[in-house]
Design a protein around this nucleic acid. Sequence first.
DNA 1: GCATTAAAGATAGATATCTAATATTAGATG
DNA 2: CATCTAATATTAGATATCTATCTTTAATGC
Lengths: 178, 178
Amino acid sequence: MQAMSDAKKDKQSSHVPVHPDERMARLVRLAARGFNRALQLRLQTENVTFGQWIFLRILWQEDGLSQRELSDRAHLTEPTAHTALIKMEELGYIERRNVDGNKRRQHAFLTKRGWALRDVLEPLALEVNDAAMAGLSVKAQDDLRNALSVMIRNLENDEHDAAARGVRVPPTKGNTAN
Amino acid sequence: MQAMSDAKKDKQSSHVPVHPDERMARLVRLAARGFNRALQLRLQTENVTFGQWIFLRILWQEDGLSQRELSDRAHLTEPTAHTALIKMEELGYIERRNVDGNKRRQHAFLTKRGWALRDVLEPLALEVNDAAMAGLSVKAQDDLRNALSVMIRNLENDEHDAAARGVRVPPTKGNTAN
DNA sequence: GCATTAAAGATAGATATCTAATATTAGATG
DNA sequence: CATCTAATATTAGATATCTATCTTTAATGC
């Protein structure tokens, strides 16, 4: 019997035959999980959570968005955005305030501290990206992005169709695994 | 100004410029989210949760695995597997018991009910897969799987390297979004 | 301009995941 | 063969997300 390769020693590698129905879904989930873990690994050294990263990233590009706008952009619910933003205000990354005398909307504005994080965190994301892309040609990366975009659109349409048929759209509870 | 396409009306579509550092990561996460939602949408009509699906799928291929083996296969922790399996036993999908007089290991065995679910649930997964693949050639799908596999391996290596440097590997807390 | 409806946010409670600590059993070693 | 160590499962507690509900404020229609 031949010796196992390095990769095979890892207990994650599937001894298990994968359901044909789920092969692509599984790969996509595992890749997402990989990106998340790789990024969280780096963010934790700066004491920033993944959720905070998501909102920071959005604010660096569009400072002063309302909570509702932020939750939309982040694909997270308002309560989730709410608690994350409260925490980020406590941490001094943002300031929440009203604009134009509208007391309904709560807008989030980056503080000096919040802006400063950008210089620290963006390189970490770049690092993850570079690590992930190793061995993939520019064309391969391009094709990959295109194919992913097609799948995303297909699945969004599926969801819209379901919603149109009156199906309640379920939670996106946390399950990056598998 | 030209009219917006159907797709653009959706509020999810990004008015927001995406961080170059995060473009691929974001696409992968959104695709994973799409798969999860599309599947959950269908599973909920059968009162099966995503977590239960994961374990059922594994057991249909390897009945009688221990809790430890199941959590490995599912890429979930043991407490997570534990509670899921307890619940699945309550629901009558599996039976948990010892084997060979070994009182340490708890093995999970599908009941008739658990096996029967297969005929109902697998078509749903196939449906999701087909929906996701619309418009992608066989070759494109092949390339996509290859590229995803490369990324997964790259990111696993990244994690192993980090672990070797003594970095604590962080949770894979639920954040499929964005 | 007052009353109704809609929008935005806040709060409370549920769920699925995680980490850490504990208990039990099996296997290895002096 | 008695003890130590490792494996497995369990329990307890934290966290990030979700849904549902409530409150406040703005917009709209008579």
